[in-house]
Amino acid sequence: MEQTEIKMSGKDVSVSYGEKQALFDVNLDIPAKQVTALIGPSGCGKSTFLRCLNRMNDTIDICKVSGDIRLDNQDIYHRDIDVVELRARVGMVFQKPNPFPKSIFENVGYGPKIHGLANGKAELEEIVVKSLQRAGLFEEVKDRLYEPGTGLSGGQQQRLCIARAIAVSPEVILMDEPCSALDPIATAKVEELIDELRENYTIVIVTHSMQQAARVSQQTAMFHLGYLVEVDDTDTMFTNPSDKKTQDYITGRYG
């Protein structure tokens, strides 16, 4: 792997939900301005790991996280870290599109408003338009910015959620199976978008589609039963995996 700046890193990350341990001593570095794909069969802990990166697991009472996760070499589970600020820097897009029951404009403007990123309406409008443009949605919705976001199609809703996430100018965007609820055309659009976003953002994506991982990511990490099995360049991983489990999984023989 070529030498790149490390944006986030996890050391000995273990997670348990109550009695059940979901993640065991995961060590994974996330390089900056690249797409890292997390793959593995269902229930292997890849979403759990993703949710540790912006502490979304905090919203689940019984979830316990141990180990050391760093963003720009800063422990994000440290007492002094404001989780609100962390999540503004590490945004997230979910499996199912979840636009707020508000207008398209308000959906995208929500983040900038709560973080006070815009001085006045003109600036807010600029942020909204720019975010929608970056998410490749602006042309499709420019005439109905004030209609409810829930009225869009599934693929448009997901790109709206991406626009919403980048409106607060995060440094890292976490995506939890962002295309699993979308049809192939909408999926292709989102993948294209991910590829473009890589220029400005560090992206971590959980996916069940091997093709998607191969298409969009530069680094791939394979999880199995809560353990990180293998992590490597995507190209290496898909052509010459070192672990038998990975080989079986990506060739579709198991999982």
């Binding site: 912006n54 979304m56 919203t59 609100v84 600020e85 962390l86 999540r87 503004a88 820097r89 945004g91 997230m92 979910f94 199912k96 979840n98 636009p99 707020f100 029951p101 508000k102 929500y110 983040g111 709560i114 973080h115 959620c161 919403r164 996430a165 607060v168």
Partner: peptide
């Protein structure tokens, strides 16, 4: 999922309740 969406933007609990949950 709406709450998660809001938290993931860096909204606090009270912001989430006032601006997302209650309007919905």
């Amino acid at each position: 999922s709406l709450r998660d969406g809001s938290y993931a933007m860096g909204a606090t609990k009270s912001e989430t309740i006032r601006k997302v949950v209650l309007p919905a």
